[in-house]
Design a protein around this nucleic acid. Sequence first.
DNA 1: AGGTAGTATTTGTCTAGTTGTATAGTACAT
DNA 2: ATGTACTATACAACTAGACAAATACTACCT
Lengths: 240, 240
Amino acid sequence: MAKSPPRTPVWRSIAITLTDDIAQGRYETGAKLPAEAQLAERFGVNRHTVRRALADMAEQGLVHARRGAGVFVAAKPTDYPVGKRIRFHQNIRRAGRVPSKKILRLEVLAADAREADALDLAPGDPVVVYEGLSYADDHPVALARTVFPAERLPGILEALDAHDSITAALKACGVEDYTRRETRITAKLATATQALHLRTSEGAPILRTTGISDDLNGVPIEFGRTWFAGDRVTLTVGDD
Amino acid sequence: MAKSPPRTPVWRSIAITLTDDIAQGRYETGAKLPAEAQLAERFGVNRHTVRRALADMAEQGLVHARRGAGVFVAAKPTDYPVGKRIRFHQNIRRAGRVPSKKILRLEVLAADAREADALDLAPGDPVVVYEGLSYADDHPVALARTVFPAERLPGILEALDAHDSITAALKACGVEDYTRRETRITAKLATATQALHLRTSEGAPILRTTGISDDLNGVPIEFGRTWFAGDRVTLTVGDD
DNA sequence: AGGTAGTATTTGTCTAGTTGTATAGTACAT
DNA sequence: ATGTACTATACAACTAGACAAATACTACCT
């Protein structure tokens, strides 16, 4: 009978539409969305189907509901400045959110060719590999994999474990300041594990940045890639 | 010893029986058929066999199923004139049916580039976005999304909410008359939500008209798109 | 003005029913 | 052998309605 039934559930397309409305600024931060009943009418579905969509959006921290009051836009996509000085905690706080981190992996490995090249090492030299999740208001914003030259930064592994911020850990290793030499940005689709970490869905748009940071002497001390949830983050370049 | 097996499949005879029921007025247009499970019981067959029959009928446009709701007798085709003066209520009444409308969405938003261009506004100027469903004899005929220049038509939002017809709402805002500058017609396939509203299936053929209307001074006051259920509406052009 | 009660909205939760899809299996005809 | 017709079962997706709980609004009283 029906040609092709919607392979994507209706509630998901509703969530996408509303997310798009918010992302495009049609509803501002803190604004109240139309009532569930009205949205149900607009989309021609039952109220429960709308609730399913809103629940999905709420889980991603995009929106939050107050019983009796309504559903409100929790957050427009976070602006994340990309420039010479990239400090996650500063960036998030500047956006009026509370930053936090979670370490997924922290170990010493032998540098591969790419890492050695970026950090000006010989292949096989020891590097500290750090993989972590960055949160804004307890919502995952970015997934990062960063590589540090182990011999150039003695004690960096323990420092990363002890301190919550990379900046603080580097300072503990004697790096007073560091700047981003270059940042490359590309668009990707989320893999299954990335989607899991970033609490989005597989195939969702992802912003991937690749960068190298130097200390004040121009010696590379960090090579890393970061994956941002594309619909939750807007990278901004300039005014640095 | 072997009985002669039915040359015509069971499902076909079920389809014929049900089609006959509809033709004889046992189920009226728009009415809900008994649930598949009940029909299965009535005919003493498995539910899937009934589904096979209903699928056949749906393909012929006789019935339409809504997941979770039921199977409904489809509506008959309507003629809809398209010309310089497009008045929904007049058009439907001329076809001997009772027109009605339902507002799905009514908000003030910022105009996007396309809307601004059509209405001769600057992008970001406030526009009233109206989305509505048009019915003939309580059967959905068209889905419309119309955009009005908010500043050019003060009070249009309230007027649209208060009056049942767009013509009446515009008159309340001082627009005595308006004519369609141009109408473009294309064929599309129904999206999931469009299909839900128009009570047809996703992927069903859709007639989409895009048009701009001017007031008597030639100032654009309306930019809208309308989606008609292709197998239930015939657009007619001429004698204007 | 200010508080209070009542009413209407709005989200949260629950139960039940219906169609859509997938899988597995039997009978039978060509 | 292969395909068609049909049965059987299970689950997912969506609808429908009802009620509870929290909130917002309005009219009224003091």
